[in-house]
């Protein structure tokens, strides 16, 4: 009964100087009601979907999900598959170079723009523009640019340098770097903008103080500004990493995994097994392993980031 009475009142006009203790569950009721759809989505769609996938990865599901248990067979096959191992290796190569490359190029571009240059708006727009394109379009553009008969190689040869060879997409050893070029071209603009916002957030006085102390510009950036921009870097890192794990459309548009299997990535393995091979169990096992990878990266990071702060 008390509950009903309490619920009738809007949370805002709780009796001033009330003698009863308010029921905690109904504090900020509106906010909590508004949260319900979000909680529902998180529980059912994310958590429920994840559990469903993991459970079915232990079955021999074909085109349609079925609960005929096969134990760890799908995982055994996954880890003995050459294509999966190549995929993991490729993701590691792409991931490391992409994180380092995007952060370095993004920061350098942002720092250059921050030096109060002319036409800053124009440059910013140009650098950010590729981000407006989807990975499919990016992939197609770079497939043409890197095509030896149409793109860069042809132009350089036409300019008189006959022996010039630049054909990364048809070379199994270089194909991941060809993909990386396109990925960096597409992704650095956004990171640059985030970095630029971070740089603008640094107080002018810091620069003045550094100048008074006679610290060089580069040294100021590396030793003072970058440590101060830690939260910005963390945001950038999360954005880049999430892009890496789901790398799929760029590969499909540029190489479709070729030459051979040399540019396969885990997400593509999942798609190929699930729909091409009509083997859901195998696809689910692969996507479960992708989840495990993300968790392995995420847990130490979350611990450092949040656990550390609480201690401090």
């Amino acid at each position: 009964m008390a509950i009903a009475e309490d619920a009738d009142r809007a949370p805002g006009d709780r009796p001033r100087g009330a003698t009863r203790r308010p029921v905690r569950l109904f504090q900020n009721l509106q906010a909590k009601v508004a949260m319900v759809p979000m909680i529902f989505v998180a529980l059912v769609v994310f958590l429920g979907g994840t559990i469903w996938t993991v459970v079915h990865s232990f079955t021999g599901s074909g085109l349609l999900p079925r609960l005929n248990w096969v134990g760890l067979d799908q995982y055994e096959r996954l880890w003995s598959s050459r294509k999966w191992l190549v995929s993991i290796e490729n993701l590691a190569i792409y991931g490391i170079f992409s994180i380092v490359g995007t952060l370095v190029i993004g920061f350098v571009l942002a720092a250059l723009l921050d030096r109060k240059i002319r036409f800053e708006d124009t440059f910013r727009t140009i650098f950010l523009y590729p981000f407006a394109l989807s990975f499919i379009v990016t992939g197609l553009i770079w497939q043409w640019l890197l095509n030896p008969d149409l793109g860069i190689q042809n132009v350089v040869r036409g300019a008189g340098w006959e022996g010039f060879a630049f054909d990364p997409l048809n070379n199994p050893d270089l194909v991941m770097y060809g993909l990386l070029i396109a990925g960096l071209w597409q992704g650095t603009g956004l990171i640059m903008c985030i970095m630029l916002a971070g740089l603008r957030g640094i107080d002018e006085d810091i620069w003045k103080a550094a100048r008074v102390d006679g610290i060089g510009v580069v040294k100021t950036y590396v030793l003072i500004i970058i440590p101060m921009m830690r939260p910005v870097f963390v945001t950038a890192l999360v954005l880049i990493t999430s892009g890496i794990v789901k790398l799929y459309d760029l590969v499909v548009a540029m190489t479709s995994g070729g030459p051979g299997i040399s540019s396969e990535v885990p997400a593509k393995y999942v798609m190929q097994a699930t729909f091409g091979g009509q083997n859901l169990g195998q696809g689910f096992a692969a996507s479960t392993m992708m989840l495990v990878m993300v968790v392995i990266i995420l847990i130490p990071w979350a611990y450092l980031e949040f656990g550390g702060r609480r201690r401090g």
């Binding site: 074909g62 598959s81 050459r82 070729g258 051979g260 299997i261 190929q272 091979g277 009509q278 083997n279």
Partner: peptide
């Protein structure tokens, strides 16, 4: 042959062809 096996054969043969 099931599509699953065909996928595996495709992977193998394209790897051979390009290696």
């Amino acid at each position: 042959v099931s599509p699953d096996t065909i996928t595996q054969l495709n992977d193998l043969m394209t790897e051979f062809w390009n290696t």
